[in-house]
Design a protein around this nucleic acid. Sequence first.
DNA 1: TTGAAAGCGCTAACAC
DNA 2: GTGTTAGCGCTTTCAA
Lengths: 334, 334
Amino acid sequence: MTFKAKRPTLRDVAEVAGVSEMTVSRVLRGKGVVSQRTREHVTAVVEKMGYVQNHLAGSLASARSNQVAVIIPSLNNNVFTEVMAGITSELDKAGYNAVVGISDYDLKKEEMLVYSMLSWRPAGVVVPNIHHTDRALKILRNTEIPVVEMMNLTQQPIDISVGLDHKAASQVLADYLISRGYKRFGCIGGSPKDRSAAERVTTIKKRIRDHGLDVFAPDLFEEPPNFSGGKSGLSQLLELRRDLDAVFFSNDTAAMGGIIHCIEQGIVIPDDLAIAGFSGLAAAQNFPKKLTTIATKRFETGRMAARCIVNRLSNVVTKPVIDMGFQLIEGQTA
Amino acid sequence: MTFKAKRPTLRDVAEVAGVSEMTVSRVLRGKGVVSQRTREHVTAVVEKMGYVQNHLAGSLASARSNQVAVIIPSLNNNVFTEVMAGITSELDKAGYNAVVGISDYDLKKEEMLVYSMLSWRPAGVVVPNIHHTDRALKILRNTEIPVVEMMNLTQQPIDISVGLDHKAASQVLADYLISRGYKRFGCIGGSPKDRSAAERVTTIKKRIRDHGLDVFAPDLFEEPPNFSGGKSGLSQLLELRRDLDAVFFSNDTAAMGGIIHCIEQGIVIPDDLAIAGFSGLAAAQNFPKKLTTIATKRFETGRMAARCIVNRLSNVVTKPVIDMGFQLIEGQTA
DNA sequence: TTGAAAGCGCTAACAC
DNA sequence: GTGTTAGCGCTTTCAA
């Protein structure tokens, strides 16, 4: 008969080391004074026993956590993975860990994530964008931990907002293409699930129409605005309207798919067709013709979001609205 | 003077509802019998008070968790984000949450993540590949929760292995290109940080040399094997050796960068130069010439890894080694 | 169907 | 420098 050893607790370590639990605790956390001799002895015992701290108990007792909850809409989108990279790099430095939840662009799912993540009593929380269900909003407003809303900037954040003004950026991009003399525009992407993308498309359409120009943006694209979706989307769009002379894609990845379609079909960019994206991904700037797009600071946005959390936790005063800005890349495709 | 209300506890809810803590607990967890009347009343009070459960206390008391720790090397790699998507989709269904840590291909960092994630007492843990530091290995061997090693298959897993045989896949790919008659090979990528990629490159080189053929694979590429790295890498490689007739890239994304380089330079694929990737990403199959590569089941691998954890936790017997297989895509680039 | 007692494994606060 | 005491907010177990 074999006995499955229960995993050791602080008490076990303390007993073996011949000291009190508090002493072991102090050694493990590197807090409080412990003599050099004791410290070394305890460390050795901990190592030998393969003791792993129990943060559940620790956090419960201390009402403190080093976890930061981060909710992002998707991992299949370079934009969010770059933001995540920024967040984790900054949290790492300050000794915090990111706990990631994927909302799938679904506000109801986001609400569930908010609830379930806060139930682990994290030190802070980062959520995307500015739209939330009423219940999610209520929970986020009620919590005393720092809350960062990230990506799309808002002037009335729950707590802190970090991002850029998608509407302003879309207007700059639309104005640029209009100023280049294009007349018959198309739009691809901007499914209502991704509210920021939808807002960009809406803004661009309005801007173009305000100039008395035409824009064709049917809601017929089933595919997500990724590379393949951009490629097949452009193909469908051009079948319906052969006379378009400029197409906006809701993001750079989809735009790259569009460019590939043009290369395949012998459509000359930008003479036959102009193409514009949104984000400023590195890959799109390495295409045969650099993509005309809006450059955004994705990594930096994540880093700033994390920094706001960390600052708040260190009682450093933080501005509630942080505009990361954007920049038009004129590129060679429009 | 304002009083910051402390967030409500089970006891507070119980008091307001006029029942015991246990009754509230039963309602919240949906376990045990509670009268319909009481249940509705308690639910209403919970909602009104904006009570958020404290899983720290709950997990500590019950020694149970619905969190599964997942460590992946990087988020800037489609392969891992697709695997993650598979994991979260499957965990979701079973009521578990993924907690993600990014190791950055760094075994020491992975070790720290293993320790810090296990300290939150998750229900299971998923780690990439088959290489770990001694301490990480010791911790993972010592834990009684299910451990899945994923991506690269091993016949001697710590607990469960899910993935494909990268060596076998590399041989199939190398053999295919050799059979097509190419003679002067090049390799791009395979930095030692990504051990699976390095193993693939080593295998391919050996296979080619075993056939008495030449392969040029200098270790001079600073850039990571992403799109831009693949593009500039091919450019550098061809400057050093103009006579190459086939190039292996360590992944599809880098290979796409290589294809773009060829398009820009007027290099005809595959007549002037053959190109091969690894992974079978959708985007690469939407390029003007479909990429010759090895198709892998990324989403399914993640799903299977998660399913193994869930099965184990439900006491369903699980095979310790699960080969997800691979498939040669002959494509049009080689 | 409900409640009371005990304790999960740790840390804060204080005593020595 | 080190130890003692009293919880943190829940769930388990058992009694009513």
